[in-house]
Design a protein around this nucleic acid. Structure first.
Lengths: 210, 210, 210, 210
DNA sequence: GATGAATGAGGCTTCATTCAT
DNA sequence: TATGAATGAAGCCTCATTCAT
């Protein structure tokens, strides 16, 4: 007899609108009233479905992470079993040619990194998301080491390094467009991966072949 | 009988206090009143010396960049002339073992990246700072290529890639402590530089030597 | 095929929950949603059974008064016919050794006195409750005067005075615990009653007996 | 050179306006905006001079207590040295014929008792005020006992009892006007004091004189 | 009778900025 | 230069009440 519950849809609707405002105006700049307007809801309703503004932010982060994880899984599935291909897919998924590019998500990600700095709950969730990325990449590298394709590599060091680089590309893409030559990100990161996952060679002129 | 001008000291005093609050509370969270209290000045005075809060933020950014540039120059001077050593110095300066580590500056830098997202003037200054880093690194790499130590490298791609990685390490260090194995950052980045600045080798088992 | 009416139970259920919240959070602090949760009902239902929040408050007051009156009658019945005993019972009932103490009801009573100050309907009901107490006590005293045990007393003055004292004890018990020596209230009030219900004697040293 | 500080006046101005609204509308009903309007100040200014609404309430309480204490001291001074007169003055000061009556202060006092119920800081201050009243009265009674005018009295019980009665008269005066016969309060309380401060006599007909 | 989503007004508080002195 | 009081616009959040189902 009561009106059918629609909490899930509403929460999604709110989260969507919040994410869009968040990308453009940052967390403090994202007024609840703005979000309500964007979602075409009354302001009070946002607080009916979320206890506080922070909860909405965390919901946005959750959504971002979940979509990221699902997308990554799908992408990795194509090259399952081949660590080199998986590594390439991992890199392409994150830095690939804009096919999956989502500037809004990217901007939110940067905003979230800023909030992680000063809000423990955001910090925890943000760090967890990064840790999960590192774990997945570590697993790939481990398999590569086991199969002998990544010689002399320590996945426990290489994975965080690659994730850091990806994160850095994100920041530069969002804040200093033009600094990264178009289309170069994935290629460059792959070369960096080569450096990490192969034995060092000294810099210098090509060794003379006898 | 005008009192002696002390604008410069005052501005420095204000900038210092603002930076400290900024690192802890973010831009919107940094109330002018808080800053004034931290600087032991009256709130009104901040607006006497700075037209607006944003101007203080930009002054902080300027100061950060200037100190960074001076420090980098000093560090590079030690290895002047040797591109490989300079590259190592560049990396160590940014990711080295905490000798120069300044968590406050780091946090401000993250905060600034977030503000760059939504404030054109910050964006411009932030991007300029990054561009300048890329330029300096590019010059080093160029010299290395010219001298034959960096074979098959394209400094125009490699420099942004390395700067992106550094930026990424910054973000992770500030937001997800513990994800980067202690002391590994500079080492890993150097290996990544090897990958970028040397000809590719295919992944795989070590070639048999005849 | 109407479902069986349960309005009365529901109203009692709501009133009970409201009283409990009221004691702890005051009138403005008692959110309908809180009350609904405490009563394990939906918020909408409260307004189905009560026209407004104020009506619930008045229902609580009614309930309080009714229970008080019933309890008092029961207590007085034991000493029916003896004005001195009835007076003692009246005092004990209100200030007795905690046997009947109900801190929740006490707190609500204080809250209600505050609301009486600014809400005419509460004021009226609150004053009526006090007037009824005064009336009952007056009747007792009247009988005592008639029978000669209360000499020189004016029940029209004495009854309000005793009720005021009881009210004062309530306030102190609820707001300044510890100020009233434990167990002293009823005893003290009985002595005060002696003062009211007997001819004055001047203060001073005991008269010399010849 | 700066504008002369006027914090004290402003705080007094705000406290005054708040007290006036408080008496009429209660604590929750006293909107900061209302108070600002009544004080002819901008709303923001109230929070410049007081950290929160609660602080204003506490300032009101402080002011009330201070004025009460000063007034009481002045009144007692007239009968210094004579415990009986002091007791009378104490009672008259609180319940006297409206000469000092301040309905606004009275209403605030009731409101404060309600807030004491649920706000620890108010509770503490409120209880302290009552304790101070009890102390002063106890001192008077002690002297009376020492000098033999109050025979068989225990000031540690009598003082709280009298203060409770005064408090009760306050509540009734504010919430149930008309219940206390005009002009009877002080007289009745004095008779109650007789009961408390003299040896008990059994109720009953006047003893036959021989 | 019952549900719980929805509304929208209003409350407290914060804060960048201005200004009289 | 310097002070700190003053302003007023938002901002987040709460809540009594209504209403579609």
């Amino acid at each position: 007899m009561p009106r059918p519950a629609n909490t899930d849809e509403r929460r999604a609707q709110i989260t969507r609108a919040f994410q869009s405002i968040l990308a453009r105006q940052g967390y403090d700049g994202a007024a609840i009233a703005d979000v309500a307007r964007a979602a075409d809801l009354s302001p009070g309703l946002l607080h009916y479905h979320f206890k506080s503004k922070l909860e909405i932010l965390l919901a946005v982060l959750d959504g971002l992470v979940e979509r990221h994880d699902r997308g990554l899984s799908r992408r990795l599935a194509r090259s399952a079993g081949d660590p080199v291909a998986e590594l390439g897919a991992f890199i392409d998924f994150h830095l690939g040619l804009g096919s999956e590019a989502d500037p809004e998500a990217l901007a939110c990600w940067i905003v979230l990194s800023g909030e992680a700095l000063r809000t423990p709950r955001v910090q925890k969730a943000f760090a967890r998301a990064l840790a999960s990325m590192v774990e997945r990449l570590t697993a790939i590298l481990d398999r590569g080491v086991a199969s002998g394709v990544f010689r002399g590599a320590d996945p426990a060091l290489a994975a965080p390094a690659l994730v850091a680089s990806i994160e850095g590309y994100f920041v530069l893409a969002a804040t200093a467009p033009g600094i990264i030559p178009a289309g170069s990100a994935a290629t460059s990161l792959k070369r960096m991966a080569h450096g990490l996952l192969q034995p060092d060679r000294p810099f210098g002129p090509a060794p003379k072949r006898r």
